[in-house]
Each structure stands twice: as structure tokens, then as C-alpha cells.
């Protein structure tokens, strides 16, 4: 092949690559524009303050907002300490042996288990065996288990970034292992741990499949008062609306999606702000 042809092939290939990138961006744009167009007519204050309804025009998302809030708070309370402590163990304590290798492989496999399988686990253990029923606590534990591997892996990565010489400095001053972890390793890696946790949390907020199985209720006309109440969440409510036979409920579902996306954007912004603040504190 002569050089001109080869160069042309390269140019054509470059064009194809750009098209591939544009495809993704186009899809993203269409998704946003189309969903917003469908949902905006239904998005108003009443939509935020009403419970759901048989009538599309009256349906609101209040119960789902509160349900998501409850679920997420308990998910964090359970998953964050478990995940961070697990990561500390793996990075700082675990020596190289078969058991610890098994734990590591196991975590990466858990991250690949379909989310609906966690739902089945939650159904069998928390809903039925432990008798929690189809409640917030069952949903939150299930979600916590789902995002646990993500938090562990992210925390491990963050802990790995702690410079070796800082740990040495601490040990050389006669600090014990736990003191070194508490005073040096955790403060240094906290921004990374928080970022990873927030990403995991935003995954949990958007996740519907496990809660469908654990049994978020299709329609809730109250805001939960205790963790042992029934619940629905934003994605569950959207799912319910999207499966309604009446055409107008697709618009209501789209309005729900807009709320969900705004919540997710808000959470990610908080993550960035929190991380920046923490980083400043470390430097002082």
C-alpha cells in the first residue's frame, strides 16, 4: 500500500472514532432532552408535596422522596463503617496468606454480582428469616451489602495513596498501628474514601432492582416514621408509574426521573464540596 492510501485509511478511521464518541454524546443528549420534555409539564410544587394517586394529574412523589432518604441514611450508617474497616483490615493488617487472598478475590467478585441477586438475598434473610418484613431496614441492609464492595475497593485505593514515609514517621515516634491508622492514614485518605462512598451512595439511590424483590410497596400514602415502616423510593415509584397502563403516567414517571436526576446531581456536587473542604483541613 502506498503512503497516500495508508494516510487516507488513518483519516477515515479517525472519522469513525469521532462518530463513536458522538454516538454516546448524542444518546445522552436525546435521553435528557426527551425525558425533560415529557416530564416538565407534570413537574410542579404539587408533584413534590403530593402522595401518589390513581389520577396522573394528582400523583406526587413525596412518599418516594422520604423513602429514598430513609433508605439512604440507613444504607450509609451500615455500609460506611463496614466498608472502611474492611478496607483498613485488607490494606494494613492482612498479611499475604490464602484467607486474605480469598477475601480480596471475593470482594471483586461480589462487585460483579447482579444487583437483583442481592435483592433475593435480602428477601430470604432480612424480610423472611429475620422477620423484618418488607420494611426500610430490610431495604437498607440489602442496599448496604450491594454497595459494600464498592466502598471497600474505593477505600482501599485511597488508603494505598498514603505515602509510606508518613507511616514510617508515625511508627518511628512510637505510635502503635491503630494510632497510625487513626492519626495518619485515615485523615490522609478520607477525601478519597468519601468520594468513593458518595459514588457508591449515588449508585444506591438510583438502584431499583433489589428493592423490587425486597418489596418496596407500589403505593404508599404516608411518610415513614420508623425504620420498620413500609416504603417506596424514587426509582421504585418511577418504575411503578412507568408500568401503569394509562398513557399520562409516562409523563409522571418522566417528572419523577427529573427529580431523581436532580437529586443525583446535588449529591455529586456535595461530594465534591465535602472533599475539597476535607482536603483544605488536612493541609492546615
Amino acid at each position: 500500500m502506498n503512503l497516500g492510501k495508508r494516510k487516507n485509511a488513518n483519516r477515515i478511521f479517525h472519522g469513525i472514532l469521532v462518530c463513536c464518541i458522538l454516538f454516546s454524546i448524542l444518546m445522552l443528549a436525546v435521553l435528557f432532552i426527551d425525558t425533560f420534555k415529557k416530564g416538565l409539564p407534570y413537574l410542579n410544587v404539587k408533584f413534590l408535596t403530593n402522595y401518589t394517586s390513581r389520577f396522573a394529574s394528582k400523583a406526587g412523589i413525596k412518599a418516594a422522596i422520604f423513602g429514598s432518604l430513609w433508605i439512604i441514611v440507613f444504607t450509609i450508617i451500615i455500609a460506611f463503617p463496614l466498608g472502611v474497616c474492611g478496607a483498613i483490615y485488607l490494606e494494613e493488617y492482612a498479611s499475604k496468606n490464602k484467607l486474605n487472598d480469598l477475601i480480596k478475590v471475593n470482594i471483586s467478585n461480589l462487585a460483579g454480582v447482579p444487583s437483583i441477586v442481592y435483592g433475593i438475598l435480602g428477601l430470604a434473610i432480612f424480610v423472611r428469616a429475620l422477620g423484618f418484613g418488607r420494611t426500610i431496614i430490610s431495604g437498607a441492609i440489602t442496599m448496604a451489602l450491594l454497595i459494600l464492595p464498592i466502598i471497600i475497593v474505593a477505600s482501599q485505593e485511597a488508603i494505598k495513596t498514603v505515602p509510606h514515609n508518613l507511616k514510617e514517621a508515625s511508627y518511628a515516634l512510637g505510635a502503635t498501628k491503630w494510632e497510625t491508622i487513626r492519626e495518619v492514614i485515615l485523615p490522609y485518605s478520607m477525601p478519597g474514601i468519601l468520594t468513593g462512598t458518595i459514588l457508591a451512595v449515588s449508585r444506591a439511590i438510583g438502584e431499583a432492582a433489589p428493592l423490587v424483590v425486597v418489596g418496596g410497596a407500589a403505593a404508599i400514602w404516608f411518610t415513614p416514621q420508623t425504620p420498620f415502616d413500609e416504603f417506596t423510593t424514587l426509582p421504585l415509584q418511577i418504575f411503578t408509574w412507568a408500568t401503569m397502563p394509562q398513557r399520562e403516567f409516562q409523563g409522571v414517571a418522566a417528572a419523577g426521573i427529573i427529580v431523581l436526576l436532580i437529586v443525583l446531581i446535588f449529591i455529586n456536587l456535595t461530594a465534591i464540596l465535602l472533599r475539597n473542604k476535607y482536603q483544605d483541613r488536612i493541609k492546615v
Partner: peptide
């Protein structure tokens, strides 16, 4: 794209 919940893709 990776951060969008699958329920949104379903819709």
C-alpha cells in the same frame, strides 16, 4: 452515562 440509573434507561 455510567452514572445514570438503569431505571432511567428503562424509561
Amino acid at each position: 452515562l455510567a452514572g445514570i440509573p438503569s431505571i432511567v434507561y428503562g424509561y
